[in-house]
Nucleic acid binder design. Structure first.
Lengths: 334, 334
DNA sequence: CTGAAAGCGCTTACAG
DNA sequence: CTGAAAGCGCTTACAG
């Protein structure tokens, strides 16, 4: 038997408006009437249809999430953070991990144009012109995760790559008195990589250490490139005291290279990475790195988005989450 | 500007019924009319409102997914598999990773009772009575992932833990002529762990190898317990030739213990795990294990669910996905 | 505190 | 092939 608002109203001898008021507790309803309705509803196992409610209220209380395919470990944690936060607010989450750029665009159009969601959380490698047009045109709010500086007039939740890197290098200098510090960079078109490199250079500059071109290697954020980077730097005439890898995966490659070359970490050279990935727990010695609070990225994004939707006020700010120093033993501590 | 079906119809000089027919391509529409409508729609960035469509058609083309909180790496891959498959069919996915049992129950009620989704994919540590009642009462279909045998009359997609384990142990015996084979089990209330242990015992039995109680240790699927298990077994008077760990995380613990004890893998003792987790790629020597096709778990579940929903026929079968042997070097191969 | 009625944006039998 | 109209299950100004 179908049980809708009409059926409940009929049995309770009231209008559907009254039943609706009880379930959306928007307006006062006489206590006796209310409890009668609730009793009957419970008897019938009645649950208001959220689809109908959404259509009527023009609001779905659900968030659309678009993530790139490549997110890996991050993917999981971000979704987790999003889901947890949404659950607290009693909102739902529709996910779409996009397997290509076209797909991402399509999903964006669908989300922005269709009324399926009230807002979107978007994490894209880059925001191209077509995406930009869609986003600008729609009145549905978007919150970005880890987008570059091209995003203005929107909320953007990101990681403090600059200071994360700065603090690591400063730790090398202040704590360990290292002077010759190498850098294995990430891809030159990657926003995170660029910021991390800037932090590196700034820390050197602030401590009056001159940059030595020989001490810098271009990596690709891969284990392989870290492996190569380590070997390259360690073959220089004057070897580095320490090397900062712009992400942990490259540091993993360094560990492999060090093993092959019988170079001790940290006895012969100190090493640090960035990200604090799960794999780090299994490295010996424990890698010194900067913690990226991935889950927070998701939960903060949800918070901002819901606030924008509810308050109907546009927020345009960048929330930068700290990437705290994680001191392991690879830097020479202990 | 609001662009709905009415607006498109007005501009195209047709009724909304015609526009609707174009977008649901249900009925024939004169080609010229159709292309005109499509052109105008594209101009306006019109996308049919899926909420309205859902209400009208009484079907949402979205799947609800309920996963436990503890899934970790699996979580990610399962969602990925689900999302990818759903995308192929043009369906949407609402996720909810449940942070407690109560939460899981609530979400289930919401999904089953409200018309928000057409069906549910459920992965639960165990299905208790109250969940069972809700599932049985609702006409909305449910597909289980990796549920125990308590699930009857439903589709259940799971891993072939038994044969995965059997094949590993048989590999030890047939390929390497090992006779003394140890086992570090998983938690005794864990369905996967139980099946894997069964496979272990069956392989021994089939090869006329008697089980030695001293060769079996109870682990907890954690790195720690693998570490302890390894040390325990290796302190026996007669040491094992090989040890099968019921999951890879425990094998990781074994690697750590072996390093400490200066025991060579596989020179002194062979080792194998189960799961084929990402971390395996970084173990030296490469771990021999059984591959768990996590992503397939998700995609198969979606396939079954959509089929049930569309064909409106109830399917009740268990799909068992093979856990293929992954031969590394930890077993002594090469 | 309550009801009648319009409306949310679609789909679809019915009639032409 | 096309349109007018009823209906999907709710919400909410409006009037009382």
């Amino acid at each position: 038997m179908k049980v809708d608002i009409k059926e409940v109203a009929r049995r309770a001898g009231v209008s559907i408006a009254t039943v609706s008021r009880v379930f959306s507790n928007s307006n006062p309803v006489k206590p006796e009437t209310k409890s009668k309705i609730l009793r009957i509803a419970r008897q019938l196992n009645y649950v208001p249809n959220p689809i109908a409610r959404s259509l009527s209220k023009q609001t779905t209380e659900t968030i659309g999430v678009i993530l790139p395919d490549l997110a890996g470990e991050f993917f999981m944690e971000i979704i987790h953070g999003i889901d947890e936060e949404a659950y607290k607010h009693n909102w739902f989450v529709i996910v779409s991990s996009s397997h290509s750029k076209r797909n991402m665009l399509e999903t964006l159009v669908e989300f922005m144009g269709s009324g399926r969601v009230d807002g979107v959380i978007l994490m894209a490698p880059q925001i191209d012109e077509r995406m930009n047009v869609i986003i600008k045109k729609s009145k549905r709010p978007v919150v970005f995760i880890n987008a570059g500086n091209e995003i203005e007039n929107f909320v953007n939740v990101k990681i403090d790559n600059f200071n994360g890197a700065y603090n690591i290098v400063e730790h090398f200098i202040k704590q360990h008195k290292f002077k010759r510090i190498g850098l294995v960079e990430g891809p030159s078109n990657n926003f995170d990589a660029i910021e991390r490199a800037k932090g590196f250079y700034k820390a050197l500059g602030d401590n009056k250490i001159k940059v030595d071109g020989e001490m810098v290697h271009s990596g690709e954020f891969t284990v392989e490139s870290g492996y190569v980077g380590f070997k390259t730097l360690m073959k220089n005439k004057t070897k580095p005291d320490a090397i900062f890898f712009a992400n942990d995966m490259m540091a993993v490659g360094a560990y492999q290279a060090a093993k092959e070359m019988s170079i001790g970490i940290p006895e012969d050279v100190a090493v640090a990475g960035f990200d604090d990935i799960i794999l780090d727990q299994f490295l010996v010695p424990r890698l010194t790195t900067a913690h990226v609070p991935t889950q927070d990225l998701g939960s903060k994004a949800v918070k901002h988005l819901i606030e924008i939707i509810k308050k109907k006020k546009k927020k345009t700010h960048v929330e930068v989450l700290p990437a705290d120093l994680v001191v392991g033993k690879s830097c020479g501590c202990r």
